[in-house]
C-alpha cells in the first residue's frame, strides 16, 4: 500500500499563458501516484478551470498572483487554487451550470460543472473583495477499484 506524502506550492501571475503551466506542473507532480492517462486529464482539466476562473474573474490586473497548492496524501490528490481578488457574491449561483458573468467573452459557464465532474470533491469559498479559494480532491487509482 502506497503511503506517499508530498506537497508543493506555486505562485504565478494572473496571465492566461500560466493556465497551461499550472496544469502541466500539477500533472508532473502527481506522476508518483501512477495515475491513468484519464485521471491525469481529469485533474488537468479541473486545474485549468480553477486557474482560468481566478485569472478571468478574480483579477483585472495580470500582475496579481494566483496561488496553487497541491498535496499528495496516500492515493489522494488535493489541490487548492486561491486568488485574493474580487470574490464571488453568490457561490451557489456561480456553480450553476451555464451561469456566467462574462457572456461577452463567450464563457460557457461550465467551469465549476467540469471540476465537479472530474474531481471527487469540490469546495468553493469566497468573500467579496477578499478573494476565492477552490479546493478539490480526487482519489487516484479509483478506476481500478
Amino acid at each position: 500500500m502506497m503511503q506517499s506524502k508530498n506537497e508543493m506550492k506555486l505562485s504565478f501571475d494572473a496571465r492566461s499563458v500560466n493556465e497551461g503551466f499550472a496544469r502541466v506542473a500539477v500533472a508532473a507532480f502527481i506522476t508518483e501516484l501512477n495515475p491513468t492517462l484519464d485521471e491525469v486529464a481529469d485533474v488537468k482539466t479541473a486545474v485549468s478551470e480553477a486557474v482560468t476562473n481566478a485569472i478571468i474573474h478574480g483579477y483585472d490586473d495580470p500582475c496579481e498572483k494566483v496561488e496553487l497548492v497541491c498535496r499528495i496524501e496516500g492515493n489522494q490528490v488535493e489541490i487548492a487554487v486561491t486568488d485574493t481578488g474580487k470574490g464571488i457574491p453568490d457561490v451557489a449561483k456561480a456553480m450553476e451550470p451555464f451561469y456566467t458573468t462574462k457572456p461577452e467573452l463567450e464563457r460557457s459557464g461550465m467551469g465549476f460543472a467540469f471540476i465537479e465532474a472530474f474531481m471527487d470533491e469540490v469546495q468553493v469559498t469566497s468573500e467579496v473583495d477578499r478573494g476565492t479559494r477552490v479546493w478539490m480532491r480526487k482519489r487516484i487509482g479509483a478506476q481500478e477499484g
Binding site: K44, S48, T52, E106, R107, M110, G111
Partner: peptide
C-alpha cells in the same frame, strides 16, 4: 486537451 473555454 480542451477545457470549458473550448466549449465556449
Amino acid at each position: 486537451f480542451m477545457d470549458s473555454s473550448g466549449i465556449g
